[in-house]
Design a protein around this nucleic acid. Structure first.
Lengths: 158, 158
DNA sequence: GTCAGATAGTAAGGTACCTGTCTAATATCA
DNA sequence: TGATATTAGACAGGTACCTTACTATCTGAC
């Protein structure tokens, strides 16, 4: 069945459907590149981990996910041999995440999948159309994030 | 911490953040209306259930979620006393979902929360801006949904 | 009339997020 | 310097989606 959508769909439905497609497209791109063991949440780690290492807490801020989500992504990549964690010499509470040799080899592909999906979608519509969408989403997010707190801040969390 | 986003964020990040805000805003609106026991996925049931009853399969097509997701929403609303299920007289495989008296009383509020969030967001930006976004998402979805199947169709599922 | 294939619903299980609470280590400042 | 607040990370648990696999029933082609 073709996923027909009503004439004037609730915004939430559109956001959900497009976001689902995006996630799936990234997953497909990773598979196509031969990295079936890397899933979308892992891509953030490749994108944001610098050579000097980085704490999980920092990664959560860059990727805008919660600590447990990022911790899990890092743990999985550690098991797969793409990253390793070592104590932070400057902060005994923390551990630094580093890419392994294998991780460094994968990084250009893994961190580029998001961009590739963007490019493919620009082919299907147009670069202008994608830019319009991106700007509309950015503007909306800037405006609404300060409205009656959308997600009440946790006490203990970022 | 203010959720600052990079200058040129991946589209997936924007989609996720805005969608999360939307869901949370609907949840807040339901709470504010005094229906803390109704959560966003339930709203679809109120929106799409007609007086003559409807099968869960039909609801899944209207709301664009999978059978189990909708089944769960209906089961929860049944426990809460908002809907009831009766055998479909025309199809012994199926059961029809009906709103109870209580469900009918709630419907106008529950099914309107999505629209209310849309309106609030239009106040925060502008009606034109929201329409631009909606059209951009619609256009994109129409174009990409036929590209290399985003979610390979299941054998057994709609 | 029978039988292949579609469809309604159920069940079991997975993913990517989220929350709250807790411990250890660090930073602050009266 | 000692009380207090903050931060890093671990752990337990929840939500809203998803998939695959199964049974019962219906439908349409022969």
């Amino acid at each position: 069945m073709k996923e027909t959508i009503p004439e004037n769909p609730p915004l939430g439905l559109l956001l959900r459907l497009v976001h689902q497609h995006w996630t799936q497209a990234v997953d497909n791109a990773l598979d196509a590149a031969g990295f079936g063991d890397i899933r979308p949440p892992h891509a953030n780690v490749f994108t944001f981990t610098p050579a000097e290492g980085i704490q999980v807490s920092e990664l959560t801020k860059l990727a805008h996910v919660r600590k447990q989500t990022m911790t899990q992504a890092v743990e999985e990549l550690e098991k797969l041999g793409y990253v390793e964690r070592r104590p932070d010499p400057n902060d005994r509470r923390g551990r630094l995440v580093f890419l392994t040799g294998r991780g460094k080899a994968v990084r250009p592909i893994a961190s580029a999948t998001g961009r590739k999906v963007d490019e493919r979608w620009a082919e299907l519509t147009s670069a202008e159309e994608m830019e319009t969408l991106r700007q509309a989403l950015r503007l909306l997010f800037e405006k609404v994030r300060d409205d009656v707190p959308a997600r009440p801040a946790s006490d203990t969390d970022g």
